[in-house]
Design a protein around this nucleic acid. Structure first.
Lengths: 131, 131
DNA sequence: ATATAAATGCAAATTATTTGCAAATTAATT
DNA sequence: AATTAATTTGCAAATAATTTGCATTTATAT
């Protein structure tokens, strides 16, 4: 349940945030703020979306990423942890299972930072654009 | 030599681009467009910087990354390939040696994409901010 | 040398994201 | 349950990074 997910992070449980997670869940792919708003039945102010998403990202609940097209993308961090390849030409994307070893103990010991989340994306040319 | 690096990518060799690479080389850390312009002796229009950097990034010469503070960062892709940890609170950063296995053959086979570059960043709390 | 293609500067536009503040909602306390 | 304190939300406006069109200059290919 979304309430439990939010609660575990220490954030306040609000109807808007539940709606937000529900919309992200429905999308099942990285979406922009605009796409996200369209997915939502409930209305939600853009600034509120940004503020809430930031907290959910910092809490590790939402995956925020950057496909280098000037917009932030958000995706629900589910069990099927994954990343993407992006064509630098046509901007098409595919999901990939590959991930860096998620055990960040060594980095934490070396740097003193407590790692809560990460970003990993591959860029290149798709089959169409490389020919 | 910067000329050779540019040539190998098939881009035109211009004084501006050489100045750009030289400035990135001097910086030896991820820099924003503004920081980069300050490093440069030669003047260069902002739009030109963006356009040239995009090509250098696509060519795999420059590493472009995103620390989630609304600005793009650029760093010369040298021999010392590395990534970073970023504090989500105070925005402080450290370099780390850790990288995903750079052998992307399996991904290329699975997706049909030709991988030219990637982004990988860790986010969390630094020692100060976690206490 | 000449022609073609690519890169540059300028000025203006676009658009994602942030901020301040008052009202509303949620969490904590008695 | 009722009250207080803390957090969240909406609104409107501001901020600032990035992009675009076009004419000119510079680099590459013939």
């Amino acid at each position: 349940m979304y309430r439990d997910i939010i609660k575990k992070s220490g954030l306040s449980i609000t109807t808007k945030r539940i709606a937000l997670l529900s919309a992200l869940d429905k999308a099942q792919r990285p979406v922009t703020i605009d796409e996200l708003r369209n997915q939502m039945t409930d209305t939600m102010d853009t600034s509120t979306m940004y503020r809430s998403l930031k907290k959910l990202v910092d809490a590790g609940i939402v995956y925020q990423t950057d496909f280098r097209d000037g917009v932030s993308y958000f995706e629900l961090q589910g069990d099927n942890h994954h990343h993407h390849v992006v064509c630098t030409e046509c901007k098409s994307r595919k999901s990939i299972d590959m991930c860096v070893n998620k055990n960040f103990n060594k980095v934490e010991k070396d740097t003193g930072y407590t790692i809560t989340n990460h970003i990993f994306e591959l860029f290149g040319l798709c089959e169409n654009c490389s020919s």
